[in-house]
């Protein structure tokens, strides 16, 4: 029944609610409230499982950019980092780490991830990811998503996961719009796979 009700749900609720937690945790409740007032929202809290129009997310990002005095790209990239480092969202990091022992394993598993999310939430529009291994320790992650402008989240996520695996990488982000669909490419150069000790995965207590 839930699936039927949620068919065609975009990720706006997830993004809006996620940005809310991120701003709340990193900049404080007052900055968040200030943002809601400035954006003219009739509320202070978003819901993950509620449908919001694209314009709401757009207005949220534009207002955040003014209130926090940072570009939308910077905010989204930090948000991507937050998604994999915040303790309350540790499930996402655990899932990503499940992909393998090394950062390259993780990159290899990214393709499967969008497919797995599709299995878990068939109603949700998630980005399509594709990995291309090139000579010289270069990896290109191709991302295709119907909602343009959100790719910096993936950039933040890729960088944070490199830290998590203790890998030393440099990432360049290229973007182009093809019709309504945005295509992003992340060129990842792997300088050293074990540059640092990988971060510990906090294990859950088995009950």
């Amino acid at each position: 029944m839930i699936l039927a009700n949620m068919r065609g749900l975009q990720m706006h609720g997830f993004i809006n609610r996620g940005l809310q937690s991120f701003v709340h945790d990193f900049y404080g409740a007052r900055k968040w409230e200030e943002t809601c007032v400035a954006a003219n929202f009739p509320f202070y809290s978003f819901e993950t499982l509620v449908h919001y129009e694209n314009d709401v997310t757009k207005r949220l990002l534009e207002t955040l950019s003014v209130v926090l005095e940072r570009t939308s790209e910077e905010i989204l990239e930090d948000f991507g980092t937050y998604v994999v480092t915040d303790e309350r969202l540790s499930g996402i990091r655990r899932l990503l780490r499940f992909g393998g022992e090394t950062y390259v394993d993780f990159l290899m598993s990214l393709e499967d991830f969008s497919a797995r999310f599709k299995v878990s939430m068939p109603f949700l529009e998630v980005p399509k990811l594709h990995l291309e291994a090139r000579p010289g320790n270069l990896y290109a992650v191709h991302c295709e998503y119907a909602m343009p402008g959100y790719a910096p989240v993936l950039l933040g996520l890729l960088r944070a996961m490199a830290d998590d695996y203790g890998a030393l990488v440099t990432i360049e982000h290229h973007t182009k719009l093809k019709g309504p669909v945005q295509r992003d490419r992340f060129d990842i150069r792997l300088h050293e796979e074990r540059w640092q000790r990988p971060a510990e995965i906090r294990r859950l207590v088995v009950t």
Binding site: T48, L49, F98, R116, F117, S120, M121
Partner: peptide
Amino acid sequence: TAELLCMTEMQSFLLNESVRL
């Protein structure tokens, strides 16, 4: 297994969100 784990995580996340809502 990977699909199952992904579903378990998503399910518990969605359930939490739904209860909160």
